Amino acid sequence: MYRLHNKAFEILREEVEICSSNDKEGKQKRLIALKRLQQMRLLPGRRAKLNELRDAVVDVFPIFSETVLKEAAKANRKPSIFRKFKYLAIGLTGAAGAIVILNLPHPSIRWFVAKTAPILLVPSYMNMDFHYWGARNSVQEAQSLLKSANNFSDIKQVEDKIAEAEQHLSHIPIWFLGYYPEVYCQNFSCSWNFSFDEFENIRTELIHIETTTIREKQAFVPLVEAQQAYRGAKRKLSIAKTKKQKQLAIVSMQAAIATIAEVPSGTLAKKKAETQLKAYKRYYEQVAQKK
């Protein structure tokens, strides 16, 4: 490290040129000032401060600009650690920005980088890997919930898992599947091939679960409505005071039982309906005989 930085020297040199005249005396003064600054420029040691820079020129040029001296002193300061961190941060930000651009989901960019510098696509592969396994896990959880479902709220949970899986799949660029990331998989354990077939297998499973869930949900809707109608009719029957009121309640009860009996077979709703239907019919037959 030298006492006078090149940038500070240039700032002072320009002011020396301005202050000095072109006559013999002016040239001599200019030579003296520049010689002092040049010596300071070549002398190792701590950076010269404002008062030292001033002493080097003001005896030769009393009108030397104080503003220029302060500017030179500022330029001559040793870069602080915060300043270094600033430049480092700017550099890292620039590098991160470049990587983000290279990982944009555009075929022309992604394919070019994949062929020339695949290591730069590690963020993309990590993202694809994350969403692939996110979709896979959500599908498996949806299957498990569907098999063990006991009521309508369980079906709603299956729907939530389906939505999660679809969200994950939407983040996987289909057009980029089929390019096996060798560099990424050499450093990270890849248990799938980033292939279109694997993507399609998950989507096929998801469609099957979604279809089954829709069927189950559609079966539950009339069942729940019929159950509510049956309970309402039963309540009305218990408070009925006239024969007509009792008959209307019994008719409503009969209609609810008929709706429950028509719940599609092979569904969870049908299984629940069958266990309730016997009790509903038995009670209906008892009250129907009394009317």
Rank of each mutant, 00 (worst) to 15 (best):
F9K: 00
F9I: 01
E17Y: 15
K24L: 14
K27C: 06
K27L: 13
L31I: 11
L31V: 10
I32H: 05
L37E: 04
Q38T: 15
R54F: 01
R54E: 08
V58E: 05
F64R: 03
S65T: 05
E66Y: 11
V68Y: 00
A75D: 01
S80I: 05
I81V: 11
L88Y: 03
A98W: 09
H106N: 14
P107W: 06
I109W: 03
T116W: 11
V122Q: 10
D129H: 10
R136Y: 15
N137D: 15
N137Q: 14
S138G: 10
V139S: 02
V139A: 01
Q140I: 14
Q140A: 14
Q140G: 09
N151W: 06
S153C: 06
I155R: 07
I162L: 11
S170Y: 04
P173N: 07
V183D: 13
E198P: 01
E198M: 00
E198D: 02
E200H: 12
R203T: 04
T211A: 12
T213W: 05
R215S: 12
Q218H: 15
P222V: 03
L223E: 03
Q227D: 07
A240E: 05
K241C: 10
K241D: 14
A249I: 00
V251D: 10
A258K: 08
A261R: 07
S265C: 08
L268K: 07
K271S: 12
K291S: 15
